[in-house]
Design a protein around this nucleic acid. Structure first.
Lengths: 202, 202
DNA sequence: ATCCACCACTGACAATTGTCACGGTCGGCT
DNA sequence: AGCCGACCGTGACAATTGTCAGTGGTGGAT
């Protein structure tokens, strides 16, 4: 019996997946959580064979949880199941020790099978996705550039960002200018948007 | 037997829901579509009792499809099943003739039951959601203000927007200024963000 | 007939933003 | 020690953006 931990914030999706996986003879969902914060404590308690994690979760992200899991519960295989496949995500997931990466666009049928395959030691990764990841450029932004971009995502003015990050407005403008250059965009809004889309933030 | 049409863009969610609903004795998913464009033609063909529609779909939105459905397939009850409950969405869904509005945050168990209830003639709407909708201000934006806001969502410059909408840059700036005032924000990025969050766009 | 809201535009002004050139600190690397 | 990159800052300038006061045109309501 393969014991599964399921982390997904949308209750309906989580419930539906749990029922679905429960229908398989050899699979058993032993724990369901709706936030990133619960993942590691729950895994330590129930010791699942596989953790199926969404990335966007309240609390800590599925990627962070994956990093902690591979360290604290090494016998547990980590699979990422997410809506969007930003190039940076796949890279980070693999770096975090995940052995599977599925997108919610795929057919349900492949899910149970993917779980069985990672348990046999295989790595599950869509070939197209892998190719796209390799093709995509690695994150060109420095830590500070990421900070100011993330802070500008809500449309804040430069003065706001400066205040929030305890920097001088001029400094913020310089980082933004650099980020705009590196992203090949024309203003901070576009820069933040494409950085987010490429998975270069958070 | 209650015949259901399911419209949802995420294949895995769609598949999981179909399996789940299929487990119920009195429910039957007779059609599944992944785009908004397919909804009406498919409904005309299979004549379902209930259409379960997501809002964000490729092609036309679930809300538009709802409007057409209530006109072209009047015997079909329309239910909206969506991720986020922007205040404007509920209002629009009801105006479009929907008799149910569910969020994907809720438990799966309530889904099948909600379908049975709308078929008995009831309206399914979370009381909290209804209250929030009534509390929320109605869309204060004019059609043109919505246009320029929508066009500015990707971080385009005013000149870009003007070109795309065949307006003079000064005109665009005036609409944006008005929208900024009405949304109580401080620049076009914030204005577009809050308008989107309130369901005032598209 | 008059009012009103929305539409489209202009021009002027101030504020914000983006670019550039510059100086300096710090830690890691060779 | 010297070099490099990331970091933090300043000041100046041009471009973009936001505000305001106007000019008209249209169509629906009273």
């Amino acid at each position: 019996m393969i014991r599964i931990l399921l982390a997904e914030d949308q209750a309906m999706m989580r419930g539906a997946l749990a029922v679905l996986l429960g229908l398989e003879d050899d699979l058993e969902v032993v724990a369901q959580v709706g936030t990133g914060t619960e993942i590691v404590p729950t895994a330590l308690e129930v010791r699942p064979d596989v953790a199926l994690l969404d990335i966007e979760l309240p609390g800590i992200s599925g990627l962070e949880a994956a990093r902690e899991l591979t360290e604290l519960v090494p016998e547990c295989r980590v699979m990422i199941l997410t809506t969007l496949s930003r190039p940076g995500y796949v890279r980070e997931a693999m770096a975090a020790g995940a052995v599977g990466f599925l997108v919610k666009d795929g057919p349900v049928e492949e899910l149970a099978d993917a779980i069985r395959r990672v348990l046999r030691g295989e790595t599950v990764l869509d070939p197209d996705l892998a190719a796209a990841t390799l093709r995509a450029v690695a994150n060109p932004l420095t830590a500070r550039e990421r900070d100011v971009l993330a802070a500008s995502e809500d449309g804040s003015s430069i003065a706001d960002i400066a205040g929030r990050l305890f920097l001088s407005p001029s400094t913020v403008r310089n980082y933004l200018s650099a980020a705009i250059g590196k992203t090949g965009t024309r203003n901070k809004t576009e820069a933040a948007l494409t950085a987010r889309r490429n998975g270069w933030l958070a």
